[in-house]
Design a protein around this nucleic acid. Sequence first.
DNA 1: AACGGTGTATCATATTATGATATCCTGAAC
DNA 2: GTTCAGGATATCATAATATGATACACCGTT
Lengths: 252, 252
Amino acid sequence: MAGEDRQDTLFVASVEKGMRVLAAFGEERTELGLRELAEAAGLDKSATQRLANTFHRLGYLDKDAVTRRYRPAVKFLELANAYLWSDGLVRAAMPKLIDLRQKIGETVNLALLDQDSIVYAARLPSARTAYAATIIGRRAPALNTSSGRAILSLRDEEERRRCVEEWPMRRYTPGTLMDRPKILELINEAAENGYSVASNELLMNEVGISAPIRREGTARAAIQCSVSGLTWDRARLVKEIVPYLIDTAHSF
Amino acid sequence: MAGEDRQDTLFVASVEKGMRVLAAFGEERTELGLRELAEAAGLDKSATQRLANTFHRLGYLDKDAVTRRYRPAVKFLELANAYLWSDGLVRAAMPKLIDLRQKIGETVNLALLDQDSIVYAARLPSARTAYAATIIGRRAPALNTSSGRAILSLRDEEERRRCVEEWPMRRYTPGTLMDRPKILELINEAAENGYSVASNELLMNEVGISAPIRREGTARAAIQCSVSGLTWDRARLVKEIVPYLIDTAHSF
DNA sequence: AACGGTGTATCATATTATGATATCCTGAAC
DNA sequence: GTTCAGGATATCATAATATGATACACCGTT
């Protein structure tokens, strides 16, 4: 191939297609037939058939013998295990998260900043809550979470402003804050206080309080506590949770 | 291609090579240079270079700018998230695991049987423990775990015997039981009692107690409690943990 | 300064992955 | 019971890709 259509010989396009198949599954697509999978992955039907069959034979996708629909297999969890071993910050954080959850008796999570989102790498639920709030790997816009805002609060003002202007937002509840100036104000407030609070952003009646982890270079993680807005008010949070949260976040 | 070397047109070999690269990472290989990665994946150096570069561009591998070594990226967690949404049993189990952990105040896990191993799909640590015991995705031989034995206890005697004969074992501690007849005896005992106990198998001083989940067809999951062998004896376990464990396991 | 090992860049081409298409199967509608 | 539409499976000819080999650059060690 010549000119601008020259082949990129350091990129394996078949692998990219393959990963689009795996990435097609998620909260809203838990099992898919071939046609749906092709559509969700944006691929040709024949390619999807080959790729799905390949992943099935490799053990990454299960195929229902009756309905012929595909869904992720347990090997997906092994990939996550590899990540959890490779991230020194997650390894260092886990015992501290366990201690914190024991101490305050509420749900504790570890959020990592990844581009303009946060992704939960550890979830220590204290009591029953929505399933989405108990499993790792969930991604949410940084601007809409107390963790994202806490992490950004360690950036300088110019960069905070730029991030708030450019990064995406998403409404999860009627209470999700979509007002960018207000979000910037909350981030600046977090820079003052050392923690950030978000109410009803991802779940109704859920209050998230986060403190950024200061460790090695640009902050990319925060510890978050999650409590019920029905049983906690701001004063009580500041008194009973914030000191321990900040202590833990600063102990790295 | 003709004859027995005929191309398998439903299998994408490049994708298989790609997944070997991702699967090269794990507890003992948290970050790898190209040469190490090629060796671990059993691939040619050039192929490894292309595949690693591809995964890096797709966001699945991070590359250290200084050392040029690769390691898994956060997107691995998103793949796990997809699995956790797609497994109805894990979704159904989570609130029950949270309740059980609250009730007994000890670590609670959900183990899934996958071929001849168990893989942890949910981990609810109660107190500080080894990192390996707090993260999902870890795989262990079914025969060496209380969960594997509990699940097998629901199979008929003939199949139990066959599994104990054929499935692999692995020693983790000096206390890991490697005696197949003895393991079969413990599985039969679990069939009588409805739960299985394993001491010092994966970790020293750790006692695992598991009850199989009876739900839809062949049993493939168990709920496990993990306690310290230093503070619990068998009588106390039977009195204070087993009833709640079995109640939870039977509530599906 | 020399050398070995690792990572990067490039090459010619064999082989693979491709999109198109034919065929089969199944559930729904009539 | 028959027909039909849609989804899944199987197969094809070939364009394009992924390949292993190899040259080169760089860096740490001796």
